[in-house]
């Protein structure tokens, strides 16, 4: 399977939502679209599954547009809003969608029960009306529905938002298993840990454009700082502290009483930071050195964070 986007532009009203997005996914695996809310991930996914059309440019799946129903039959889509009807049971909702893909109800039911048990939606829960489900349960059912016709490509828009940590981990392991079975998974997320744990390749999207693309390791090596030093200071980070630290890091970000410093050589930078702060009469309550995340890469490339301040 080859998914290809060529110079895709999309506008809603007067606002440009996608600005010449191009990408090519050729191999099975998990491909992440990583960006903050409003970056254009959902719009791109809508175009990818044939729900919306680009204003210019094109998206092709194996050389054919996703508007073609035979292409859509090979894609499983889990939108952000799971699209469930509260008055119907979990079974009824899922079997309705499965029938739209031509899946035999017996097979769909069997798959639903199997994946449901695994993700914490047992048969007794599936037999209840969806109106009584929590947000996380609805989300799980939404993801399960996208798997019932055993698609070759799985397009998941923020699949774990609203899920409890246990269910998130279970879904991650399910996605890893699907990758192992040769499926292509395209995953939009704004969770760093999710992207870093799951994705083989990642496209960082900001303001409708892809700002960088590669494996998480490549992106961090190419665009990230070598290390991030997190310092908490008694009394908070004021202008005086910032001016002290400015000379020790290529970039400083203040988060409450903490400062995040992007440094190239932490072994040299850390002792100097401590010396200078204590020399100025400020005491350090926490100091933590970590490797950069995709969020740090994003911050460096765009000046903004993915998950918000």
């Amino acid at each position: 399977m080859i998914v290809e986007a060529r110079d895709v532009w999309k506008r809603y009203g007067g606002r440009v939502v996608l600005r010449g997005v191009s990408l090519r996914i050729e191999e099975p695996g998990i491909y992440g679209l990583l960006g903050p809310n409003g970056a254009g991930k959902t719009t791109f996914m809508n175009i990818l599954v044939g729900v919306a059309s680009p204003d210019s440019g094109e998206v092709l799946v194996n050389g054919r547009p996703p508007k073609d129903p035979s292409v859509r039959a090979r894609i499983g889509f889990s939108p952000q809003d799971p699209g469930l009807i509260d008055q119907l049971t979990g079974f009824e909702n899922a079997l309705f969608y499965a029938e739209l893909y031509g899946v035999d109800p017996g097979t769909a039911r069997e798959r639903l029960i199997g994946i449901g048990e695994r993700l914490g939606l047992p048969r007794s829960v599936l037999a209840r009306r969806v109106g009584g489900y929590s947000g996380g349960m609805k989300k799980k059912l939404g993801v399960i529905i996208s798997l019932l016709h055993d698609p070759e490509i799985l397009v998941l828009d923020e699949p774990t938002s609203g899920m409890d940590p246990g269910a998130r981990r279970e879904l991650w392991s399910l996605l890893e298993e699907l990758r192992g079975r040769g499926k292509m998974i395209i995953l939009a997320t704004h969770y760093m840990d999710e992207a870093e744990r799951l994705c083989d390749r990642v496209a960082l999207i900001n303001d409708g454009a892809i700002v960088a693309e590669g494996s998480p390791g490549e992106l961090k090596r190419k665009h990230g700082p070598r290390a991030v030093v997190e310092v908490a200071i008694r009394g908070g980070v004021d202008e005086a502290v910032e001016s002290i630290l400015r000379g020790e890091a290529e970039r400083i970000e203040v988060l409450g009483d903490k400062a995040l410093l992007h440094v190239e050589d932490p072994d040299r930078a850390v002792p100097r930071i401590i010396d200078r702060l204590y020399g100025a009469g400020r005491s350090v309550t926490l100091l933590h050195v970590r490797y950069p995340s995709l969020d740090d890469v994003f911050l460096r490339l765009t000046g903004r964070r993915i998950e918000g301040p």
């Binding site: 044939g50 729900v51 035979s70 039959a73 809003d81 799971p82 009807i85 969608y97 739209l100």
Partner: peptide
């Protein structure tokens, strides 16, 4: 409004 339209039109339903 129920969110089903997006999902229906992403299926092979024309």
């Amino acid at each position: 409004e129920a969110g089903t339209l997006r999902r229906i039109l992403a299926s092979p339903t024309t």
